[in-house]
Design a protein around this nucleic acid. Structure first.
Length: 471
RNA sequence: GGCGGCGUAGCCAAGCGGCAAAGGCGAGGGACUGCAAAUCCCUUAUUCCCCGGUUCAAAUCCGGGCGCCGCCUCCA
């Protein structure tokens, strides 16, 4: 499989040792609920993980939880709670949102506060090797000590000064230097260190946790494109300065979510909480919405766009459930077109995980299924449905089983259908329509056709967390 | 200013040098219907922001424009 590597700015073959993929995806800072834009990398890289697994890889998937950070401290002060309480609360909410989005739990979800001693040791190592220096209880990484600094984001160190909008911190030797350890102010959460009470700076946790859980070189490190600089650049510098080995084989960065062309962000105020969107349209519609757009490109969010995705998903289910309710039958003839479509599905994904193309193929398979059914080839229709289930499942889509009804319910519905047929024959249309409407309200849709009335269960209306997926 | 990306039908969106440019939504037409819904079938880009160039052949490669976006500050 080829993936676009931010570092080399080209497509690269994913090469791993054995068949295990070691993957690290930057997770949330738990100071608030995640918004729908935050969900993009979680869904996209979850889909990548599932796809790799479906292709026979074992994936070790790590996503951190940043539970100590300025925004958490601020929030705690505002609410009169401790930083720990705030972090614990939003960590729990984050996992809830993840489940509602149908995102499988990461193999590991390390919390930064559980790694402070390791981070201290790591920083000590950088100080000892001359890559970091101590000033007044703070520790900074020296970008000048790492000549390759800037290779990920394509920035030269000298450029850090020109146009810099940040006031230069007097303590730093070079404006590009960044904090590895921050001295804590009174009343702030703090941990002991050789440099006094303090807390870890940004960037360091990912390096330390990644190394601990995945080793010195990981296959994939992913996150939003806004993290390229400075976050990932700084991670790379620390890690490679410390080990002298490549930190990451392939860097992946997803495009950002926009609203009317402008980036969605908490500070811009144009955001929607993930759970609100999921509550409205369902987690699967959100997933489809994201996967219908190339993961590297910006994606414009609107209610209409997600509603469209939901319509599309519902129609696929309509086909699946109808086909699965058909009596068992073997395809009346071999279906080479299905094999060809399956091949195309994989070919498209092998080339930079182009999920929109893959979804297009899935739609074509649905089309084949419809055509087979129309031609009276029930087995062919079922074969198409099975394929949609399998391929969709490899991306975390179309896994909801046909809602089970009891034999009694089936009989009762059938009874009403027959009753309504008699009413229609007797031209009692008002009553007949009432039966139809009441059943519809209960989620049963009547479909009158040439060969009589069939009924189908409507795709479920979304409820938050209703379709929580795992594995 | 520096770095990166994008511009394909009404909208969304694949396409990475060569079949008449996937697919979805919407729209229009048809079948079906007591009406409706749903479903099915058909139609919907002679052309890919513009101008040059390379090539037998370009949406796809190169050069130059125009427009939009992101990062350079915490941010998925």
């Amino acid at each position: 499989m080829k993936l676009y590597n931010t570092l080399s700015r080209r497509l690269e073959e994913l090469k791993v040792d054995g068949n295990t993929v070691r993957m690290y995806v930057c997770g949330p800072t738990v100071y608030d609920l995640i918004h729908i834009g935050n969900a993009r990398p979680m869904i996209v890289f979850d889909a990548l993980r599932r796809y790799l697994e479906s292709r026979g890889y074992t994936v070790i998937y790590v996503q951190n939880v940043t539970d100590i950070e300025d925004k958490i401290i601020r929030r705690a002060q505002e609410e009169g709670r401790t930083a720990d309480e705030v972090a614990a609360h939003y960590t729990e909410e984050y996992f809830r949102d993840l489940a509602a989005l149908g995102v499988a739990r990461p193999t590991h979800s390390p919390r930064a506060t559980a790694y402070v001693p390791q981070m201290v040791a790591f920083v000590e190592q950088l100080v000892a090797s001359g890559h970091a220096y101590v000033v007044d209880g703070d520790v900074y990484f020296s970008v000048e000590s790492f000549p390759a600094y800037g290779k990920l984001s394509g920035r030269a160190r000298e450029e850090q000064e020109a146009g810099a909008r940040v006031e230069v911190d007097e303590k730093k030797r070079h404006p590009g230097d960044f904090a590895l350890w921050k001295r804590s102010k009174p009343g702030e959460p703090s941990w002991p260190s050789p440099w006094g009470e303090g807390r870890p700076g940004w960037h360091t946790e990912c390096v330390v946790m990644s190394r601990d859980l995945l080793g010195e070189t990981v296959d994939i490190h992913a996150g939003g494109s806004d993290l390229i600089f400075p976050h990932h650049e700084n991670e790379l510098a620390q890690a490679e300065a410390a080990t002298g080995k490549p930190f990451v084989r392939i860097w992946l960065h997803n495009g950002l979510l926009t609203v009317r062309g402008e980036r969605m962000g908490k500070s811009v105020g144009n955001f929607a909480y993930a759970r609100d969107v999921v509550g409205k349209y369902g987690g699967e519609a959100v997933r489809y919405f994201y996967l219908a757009r190339d993961w590297r490109k910006p994606l414009d969010f609107s209610d209409e766009a997600v509603a469209e995705a939901k319509r599309t998903v519902d129609r696929v289910y309509d086909f699946l459930w109808a086909a699965e309710a058909l009596p068992d039958a073997a395809p009346s003839e071999p279906l080479p077109e299905l094999a060809a479509l399956e091949e195309r599905f994989h070919a498209v994904l092998e080339e930079d995980f182009t999920t929109p193309g893959a979804l297009g193929v899935l739609q074509e398979i649905v089309g084949v299924g419809h055509a087979r059914r129309q031609a009276g080839d029930l087995g062919g229709a079922k074969a198409a449905a099975t394929l949609v289930r399998r391929l969709g499942g490899s991306l975390g889509l179309f896994g909801t089983p046909r809602p089970a009804t009891s034999a009694l319910a089936d009989d009762l519905i059938q009874l009403l259908v027959e009753l309504r047929a008699e009413l229609r024959t007797a031209k009692q249309f008002a009553l007949a329509d009432r039966v139809r409407e009441r059943l519809f309200a209960l989620g049963v849709e009547l479909r009158d056709g040439p060969e009589g009335t069939r009924w189908a269960l409507r795709p479920p209306s979304p409820e938050p967390g209703a379709r929580a997926g795992e594995g």
